[in-house]
């Protein structure tokens, strides 16, 4: 189900989890109780892999849509890494890409205008979902609430609606229910100031 905390700040997890289906967010709350979603995770991602080396969790991981999750014991993951250095390397790489995504998000939320910010986040989601074969073409099923989009973008729900409306009016996206169709991928990436380099998806960029 959506809005279910998988791991909470302060936890000392003995498992890491992998997203099998759905969308998960890493979240932090301010002292006033305002939520910031600091990153999205899609199928195939292991959002709390850093928990393998950092004992206390410093953020929450919450489902943003109905999701299927798999749990992996830390002691098992450690012995796999000891026996298979290539797997250890790919885990390391995965956490480095997570860090690159966080850098991009700081830039997005801190410096881009709301319209660009919204286009950027849609580009990222569509690109990542397509990279893991979860969507065809440029149509993504994103049953994410406007409030959650607002928490990811640092925008009010009312302004999220306005930005979606502006993107539709510009002919860049079409929406129907929870489906978002990028009608003009080149236009959307331009509007979103989106360069997929930070996602470090080998060889995939050529296919777009």
């Amino acid at each position: 189900m959506a809005n279910h905390d998988l791991v909470r700040e302060g936890d000392r997890p003995v498992y890491s989890f992998v997203v099998l289906d759905g969308l998960v967010g890493s979240t932090k709350h301010t002292g006033e109780g305002k939520r910031q979603i600091t990153s999205f995770f899609v199928a195939g991602d292991i959002p709390d892999l850093h928990g393998l080396h950092l004992a206390v969790m410093d953020c929450n991981f919450t489902t943003l849509t109905p999701a299927r999750i798999g749990f992996m014991r830390h002691d098992t993951l450690r012995s796999i890494c000891d026996q298979h250095p290539r797997i250890a390397t790919s885990f390391w790489r995965s956490t480095l890409i997570d860090a690159a995504i966080y850098r991009e998000w700081v830039t997005n939320v801190g410096r881009r205008e709301a319209y660009t910010r919204m286009a950027h986040i849609l580009c990222e989601l569509i690109f990542r979902l397509r990279s893991v074969g979860r969507i065809q073409d440029h149509v993504a099923d994103l049953p994410i609430t406007q409030a959650a989009l607002g928490d990811a973008l640092g925008l009010s729900t009312v302004h999220v609606n306005r930005m979606l409306q502006e993107l539709r009016r510009s002919g860049l996206i079409a929406t129907s229910g929870s489906k978002v169709h990028a009608m003009d991928w080149a236009g959307l990436t331009h509007a979103g100031d989106f360069d997929a380099t930070y996602l470090h998806q080998r060889n995939l960029a050529d296919q777009w």
Binding site: A114, Q146, L155, S156, T157, V158, H159, N161, R162, L164, Q165, E166, R169
Partner: peptide, 26 residues
């Protein structure tokens, strides 16, 4: 811009808060 999506609110106080936050962003 006409809002075609809308926002769920429980009462006028919440409508006012949502509208105010929207006006700040605008």
């Amino acid at each position: 811009f006409e809002d075609e999506i809308g926002v769920e609110c429980a009462g006028l106080a919440e409508v006012r808060r949502a509208g105010f936050e929207g006006l700040i962003d605008l």
